[in-house]
Design a protein around this nucleic acid. Sequence first.
DNA 1: GGCTTACTACTCGGATACTGCTTGTCCGAGTTCAGGGGG
DNA 2: CCCCCTGAACTCGGACAAGCAGTATCCGAGTAGTAAGCC
Lengths: 155, 155
Amino acid sequence: MRMTKGVEWALHTLLNLDMIGGGPVSGGQLAEAHGLPGPYLVKQLQQLTKAGLLTSVPGPRGGFRLARSLSEITLLDVVEAIEGDARLFHCAEIRCCGRIGELSPPPEEPCPVKSAMRRAEEALRQALAAQSLMDIRAEIDRNPTIGQVVRAAFG
Amino acid sequence: MRMTKGVEWALHTLLNLDMIGGGPVSGGQLAEAHGLPGPYLVKQLQQLTKAGLLTSVPGPRGGFRLARSLSEITLLDVVEAIEGDARLFHCAEIRCCGRIGELSPPPEEPCPVKSAMRRAEEALRQALAAQSLMDIRAEIDRNPTIGQVVRAAFG
DNA sequence: GGCTTACTACTCGGATACTGCTTGTCCGAGTTCAGGGGG
DNA sequence: CCCCCTGAACTCGGACAAGCAGTATCCGAGTAGTAAGCC
């Protein structure tokens, strides 16, 4: 039940891209900004591109660029793009296996355990979807120094 | 971001223990009820014992028994007992690494990305803590057949 | 001098090794029960 | 007939391997920019 490092990397990178603004930025530069392994970060950014959060520009002076505004990107978008899906409980229907499974008639109602976990999952998804990256950006901008540092790092 | 199978196994096993009632039940019987690998299930039940959800009785006619009522056991208790903790986002503080980290002064405020994810996590924890195993038991009891089957399987 | 063309360098993209955790299994310590012997 | 003792079988508990997803890396396909050559 541990989230991938890629989620943290992707969030910070998306925020950096917005602070810099302007043209595309290469994966190498984005990686050096936080001391991350370059090719692996690019792998994650490719996931974001597939999900439509980024657009990639090939060739020299190419790189990645935001596909839409931060206010239109939620935490859920990023998590689902990196993790594949935000499901954390996978029901194996063990109620239909073993001795109990043999004695039970084929069940019609969904597994109550699964339903309960699904409700908790839904609360997580809603909490993720309720927060946009613009909200985080606003929190960062309380300290103007950070924006200056980021722009200087990519100067 | 996948939850361990042990969580599903533990939930079903706890519910079974409550439906059977009475004396302790061995790990082997509990495993056969759902066709699970016996020794590995016992490993999970030991975690539940450490967490105070079960009590273990050694020796012949021994086994596991509920330590308290289902209404006093929440989904969060089970998840934390099996998974260790319910944290799914581990902030590596990458904002302090790389070029940006070198240019930035030591930050005083907590990482905004971390805070946002922590809020979502808290929503998950609350949703897990809001549901007790007794709620699931009540849903199961809508179909009285299941209780009879479970008791027959352990007959 | 301007245009075309070939080259180079840099980018993303996917295929390929390595590590840590989940999953699964095994053997040993401890305890209860049963049976036999003695009082 | 009752009590004690010894043995055995069954339980939990922790230590030991195997499989898989996350982590990290490398090389190839494609493109833009540049420089040289030609008109």
